[in-house]
Design a protein around this nucleic acid. Sequence first.
DNA 1: CGTATTTGACCAGCGC
DNA 2: GCGCTGGTCAAATACG
Length: 160
Amino acid sequence: MSDATFRSSESPEMEFPDQSSFNLSDQFFTFEGWLEGDDPALISPKYQHSQSYMPVVEIGNSNTRTVTHHEGPSSSESGRERKDVKERFAFKTKSEVEILDDGYKWRKYGKKMVKNSPNPRNYYKCAVEGCSVKKRVERDREDPNYVITTYEGIHNHQGP
DNA sequence: CGTATTTGACCAGCGC
DNA sequence: GCGCTGGTCAAATACG
């Protein structure tokens, strides 16, 4: 996509082609393009080795909080700005299973039905004590074959 | 028996 | 001010 080459502090030479396939934890994924995000390496170290990032779609609803990247410092003059902007990283995966093993232990804490979509939305939280990383898994409204995953926050611990 | 998951209820923010 | 939507909690349950 626009930025096929994402720079990571851990893997500087990590590059993502516009389209590729790979295998991760018995799951098959297909990279389609980038959407947004900060440092993918912070989300899941396991992904660094497999180059398994495939942000594709914007999952934020129009009437919901806008899922955006980091706002520029100069944009603060507009007034409306979240002081606590948590890192969000959303991507869409073509998978039949929603429980994608990314190396971390997740504990489901909620399920909600999304309006204008028959698909439920699952809320997960990192089971590691002291780690407040949350994960949101939801199926694509029009493409049930796709699973939209949104990571929120940064892991306090290094490894899974 | 211990732990993770489930599911409804509860709460808060925003829109109207 | 009320209602809706989204997010979280927590008791009960299922499961190993």
